[in-house]
């Protein structure tokens, strides 16, 4: 917008042409962005024969909405995977937000020996990639007999360095006076945290919640390592397995892909505003 103002000097017609060109560019890019989705959705309605047709057809010659029912019926694990994904994502989201907020509170508002060192230690883990820790993490969980259980997926993800950093930074900006007022009223640290700090931190918590949820929903590598029984799998894991089983039925694989994507797409539409804001503050991770 700022630049649009800056261009106020340009004659009106030049401005209009420029605007049209910009929109054309944006629409073209939009088409490019959406085309894989559109082709997939159309492909999901094609027959097994037509999906392998050469050259490919754009619209299905015969529409097969029954593909959706077929996949759901032939593969009763799909609803199960959906629930697993949902349950794990919600659990990780709630616990991660809570634990990161707690840690953020301690780091931003409390004084204790070792605070700086601990905070630096947390930050340092941002630089440790998953590939270094995935093998020992698996072995530790195996020793604890937690491999192939939900906690194996949940535990390592419920206090993330990025989340703690975000909460700490946010809470530092909350005026001290509010906290003081609560203290004068005789509230302890826990009450202050729960009644004063948490309600004020809702924006940061929302951002963190959305990313925790999305991250868990789409996570593949870690569940792949620790979940061995199909009834515990999440949607991406199940879908990957499904696609190797039904190599000959690309149309079904596309149906499964749509099942996996729709919940996130709905979430994005509902929480659009928050998501944009939180991507902007956190860089999308």
């Amino acid at each position: 917008m700022a630049t649009a103002v800056a261009m106020g000097k340009t004659p009106a017609r030049g401005l209009a042409i420029r605007q049209i060109l910009l929109y054309v560019g944006l629409i073209l890019f939009g088409v490019l962005t959406l085309s894989p989705f559109i082709l997939s959705i159309l492909g999901a309605f094609k027959s097994t024969v037509e999906i392998g047709a050469y050259p490919p057809t754009f619209l299905p010659q015969v529409w097969h909405p029954d593909n959706f029912i077929q996949v759901w019926k032939l593969f009763p694990l799909f609803p199960r995977w959906f629930l697993n994904s949902l349950g794990l994502s919600v659990t990780v989201m709630v616990l991660n937000v809570l634990f990161c907020a707690m840690a953020g509170y301690a780091f931003s508002r409390l004084e204790f020996p070792g605070r700086n060192i601990l905070f630096l230690a947390v930050l340092a883990t941002l630089m440790i990639p998953l590939q270094v820790t995935m093998v020992p993490k698996f072995i530790m969980l195996a020793r604890l007999h937690l491999v192939n259980t939900y906690p194996a997926v949940i535990l390592p993800n419920v206090s993330t360095a990025a989340g703690i950093f975000l909460m700490t930074q946010f809470m530092k900006a909350i005026p001290k006076e509010l906290e003081e007022a609560a203290r004068i009223d005789g509230a302890g640290k826990f009450t202050t945290f729960w009644r004063v700090i948490l309600p004020l931190s809702v924006p940061a918590m929302t951002a963190l919640a959305i990313f925790s949820f999305q991250g868990q929903w789409n996570d593949f590598l870690w569940p792949l390592i620790v979940l061995t029984s199909p009834h515990l799998w999440t949607l991406p894991l199940g879908l990957a397995g499904f696609s190797t089983e039904y190599v000959s039925n690309t149309n079904w694989v596309l149906v499964g892909s749509i099942f996996t994507t729709i919940p996130m797409a709905i979430l994005v539409f509902v929480f659009q505003r928050y998501i944009v804001k939180s991507v902007a503050t956190t860089g999308g991770k």
């Binding site: 959406l34 997939s40 492909g43 991406p236 879908l239 694989v253 996996t260 994507t261």
Partner: peptide, 20 residues
């Protein structure tokens, strides 16, 4: 919003669609 759709798509779905 339109541009953001791919960002929320799971990498497995993305991989399957693009393989196709």
């Amino acid at each position: 919003t339109v541009y953001y759709l791919p960002a929320i798509t799971s990498s497995v779905v993305m991989g399957l669609i693009f393989s196709w």
